[in-house]
């Protein structure tokens, strides 16, 4: 394996959790809900995933537990913001803080327990393609799942009627309601999907990326996922670009530090964040209309009858 292959492999693994969580949040925001609790749902997924995997000895059950944990937290958020129409920003922040705390409790018995990560799946024939094969087709299931999510969500949002209705709820919930669509139920499904994705991203961290538990192991990836959604201007394939840009720079700056580039390591560590800001500014300056934020993003919907 060449150095370049190794770098590409680590970039993919660093970007995958960002991409999965961002795709989930993208669907949530397309439905008009701003859930800032991604970080909390993600780390709960990580904790529940490793707890279930170690207890049962089955990685598959671990993944399932992670997804359910993410959805459970999302359900709390949905109850607060959709059921009680509370402020979404406040509820989302509370969810992140709550998830970070609760995950510490859930994960405490498993600190320091090592287990084998989820293995890679080599796709026959394709993985034997020189260079591309090992990078793209000898990955763990999460990576394949993330690709499937991008394609699937794109198809769902722009090719299916349900996706059209979901986008309509995010654009103008009053009109969608007037047309007879169950706005709150659609938003509930979207929020649960977002929770499932965040949980899955968490499972990736604790079951495949670094197969052990440390508290706070998401390290702000949930917040980055939120930024990627804005960066992507709510388009799935741009979210993929954003996740890989961020993941790529994170890995490259590590290699740069290792190679002794004469820059302060703190500056290099900050590079992914700086570049994200820079690209966001550039996008805002270049964009002329269209594909902006869903118009009803973050506004609670209260049916008046």
């Amino acid at each position: 394996m060449t150095l370049l292959e190794a770098i590409l492999l680590t970039i993919i693994t660093a970007s995958t959790p960002l991409l999965i969580a961002a795709i989930g949040e993208l669907v949530v925001e397309r439905a008009g809900v701003l859930n800032l609790g991604v970080e909390g749902m993600m780390i709960m997924g990580a904790a529940a995933g490793i707890a279930a995997a170690i207890t049962t000895g089955n990685s598959g059950l671990g993944v399932l537990a992670a997804v359910l944990a993410g959805m459970a937290l999302a359900a709390v958020f949905a109850f607060l913001t959709l059921g009680l129409a509370t402020n979404q920003v406040a509820a989302g922040l509370a969810l992140s803080i709550f998830g970070l705390g609760l995950s510490g409790v859930v994960g405490a018995p498993f600190v320091g327990v090592q287990r084998a990560g989820i293995g890679k799946i080599e796709i026959p024939f394709l993985s034997e393609i020189p260079f591309l094969g090992p990078v793209l087709f000898a990955q763990d299931p999460f990576v394949y799942a993330s690709f499937a999510l991008v394609v699937g969500v794109s198809w769902f949002l722009w090719r299916s009627r349900a996706g059209l209705v979901l986008r309509a709820c995010g654009e103008n919930h009053a009109s969608a309601h007037a047309l007879g669509y169950p706005v709150l139920r659609i938003r509930l499904y979207a929020v649960l999907f977002g929770g499932a994705c965040a949980g899955l991203a968490g499972a990736y961290l604790s079951l495949a990326y670094t197969p052990f538990w440390t508290s706070g192991m998401t390290g702000g990836r949930g917040w980055i996922a939120l930024a990627i959604v804005v960066f992507a201007s709510w388009l799935p394939w741009r979210a993929a670009i954003g996740a890989y840009l961020f993941g790529g720079i994170t890995i490259l700056q590590l290699h740069a530090q290792g190679a002794g580039v004469p820059l302060p390591s703190q500056l290099l560590s900050a590079l992914p964040y700086l570049i994200t800001i820079l690209v966001l500014v550039l996008i805002m300056r270049l964009r002329r209309g269209g594909a902006a934020a869903p118009a009803a993003l973050g506004t609670p919907f209260v049916p008046d009858r």
């Binding site: 059209l164 654009e171 118009a295």
Partner: peptide, 23 residues
């Protein structure tokens, strides 16, 4: 008007249909 600004004309019409139809 109860239209969705960022959606296309056809999408707006499709949303108002009671039966699903391909775009």
């Amino acid at each position: 008007f109860s239209l969705f600004e960022n959606l296309t004309v056809a999408e707006n019409v499709a949303l108002a249909l009671d039966a699903a139809a391909p775009l």
